[in-house]
């Protein structure tokens, strides 16, 4: 492993360098047993998975950053304009503060909970919150639209929701009314379409709602947030708030870049509970939910999984 094995160890002191031409490194480590110590530091190179995960995390962060930037430019680039007239020193300070703010954000999210539970999940929780904060910026910059119906195009079929929460499915080109869709749940709140539009978009308030024990207990805060993010006509601002709120949820971990069941690439996050695990794949460029998988990991249904693969969602004015 090391390239210095051929350097003779002679016990000379630093002052001898000039005369002997010994490499600087060999001089720095000129003590008995230096080679043995170096050899004891030999480790296996990182696994392909470890490298892929590190890279996926950065690719997601870069993609989120760039998507956020592009959107920022479209909207008038408020943040960058005043920098132009600044002195170099001021500009450097602004840069430093931005970085400090990012770092502070990470710290805040790490400390949201009470006592740290496990180091492993803690470390990964950090990376998830960095991603969720970035994706929140992306979500905020998606364009606002409207329509009579909210259409959800899943791999298994299409469904439509009216503003009065009537639910329609389309089968063989024919639309069938399937009754009323249950309200969305957010902690103690039951939300219909109208209530959704009036809901706060403040991340702190949303997080508080998410953390208020739900009814029934089986729906986790992660599931609640994702149901709204994936299958509801939540506004870009509300989606941004929800992503940011999720960054404060304990136990959300970043998996990295994965492909969904249709082969689309996205960033996966997981949330494990006592008997189940939820995994979501988010498109880092648009903040769209690509796929949600819920798997029972214990109990009677152990091993059973449900998938929801979103091919597209959006407003439309007619069914079919």
């Amino acid at each position: 492993m090391n390239t210095y094995d051929d350097v003779e160890r002679t016990g000379m002191s630093t002052q001898d360098v000039e005369e002997t031409g010994m490499s600087e490194r060999a001089v720095l480590l000129d003590f008995p047993g230096a080679d043995d110590l170096m050899a004891a530091g030999r480790v296996e190179p990182p696994s392909a998975q470890a490298l892929a995960r590190a890279l996926a995390g950065i690719e997601a962060a870069v993609a989120a950053q760039e998507a956020g930037h592009a959107a920022g430019r479209k909207k008038g680039a408020v943040a960058t304009a005043p920098l132009r007239g600044m002195s170099g020193r001021r500009r450097a300070l602004v840069g430093l503060f931005t970085a400090a703010a990012v770092a502070a954000g990470v710290a805040t999210y790490t400390n949201t909970g009470e006592t740290p539970t496990g180091t492993r999940s803690e470390t990964r929780a950090d990376t998830a919150s960095v991603f969720l904060n970035d994706i929140s910026t992306v979500a905020a910059t998606q364009s606002l639209s409207s329509g009579k119906y909210w259409k959800t195009h899943l791999t298994v079929g299409d469904s439509y929701l009216s503003k009065s929460m009537d639910f329609y499915v389309v089968n063989d080109g024919k639309a069938y009314k399937k009754g009323r869709q249950p309200d969305w749940q957010l902690g103690p709140k039951d939300l219909d379409w109208k209530a959704l539009n009036q809901l706060t978009t403040d991340p702190a308030k949303l997080l508080q709602l998410l953390q208020t024990p739900p009814r029934p207990k089986s729906i986790s805060p992660f599931d609640q947030a994702l149901t709204l993010l994936g299958g509801s006509p939540a506004s870009p601002k509300l989606r941004a708030g929800l992503f940011k709120a999720m960054a404060g949820l304990k136990g959300v971990t970043l998996v990295g870049t994965v492909k969904d069941s249709t082969g689309r690439s996205g960033t996966a996050l997981e949330f494990a509970e006592a008997k189940s695990i939820g995994r979501v794949i988010v498109d880092p460029k648009t903040s769209s939910i690509l796929e949600y998988t819920f798997t029972w990991t214990a109990g009677a249904s152990k091993g059973k999984a449900t998938h929801q693969t979103y091919l597209s969602v959006g407003f439309t004015d007619k069914i079919g």
Partner: peptide, 28 residues
């Protein structure tokens, strides 16, 4: 990864991913 593996073998993969995200966030 080598740095982490030599000092915290069980957590090297996690720490590597975390280090990159923190480096990216603090790149300025």
């Amino acid at each position: 990864h080598g740095y982490f593996a030599r000092r915290m073998p069980g957590a090297a993969d996690d720490l590597l991913a975390e280090a990159w995200l923190q480096a990216f966030a603090a790149r300025r």
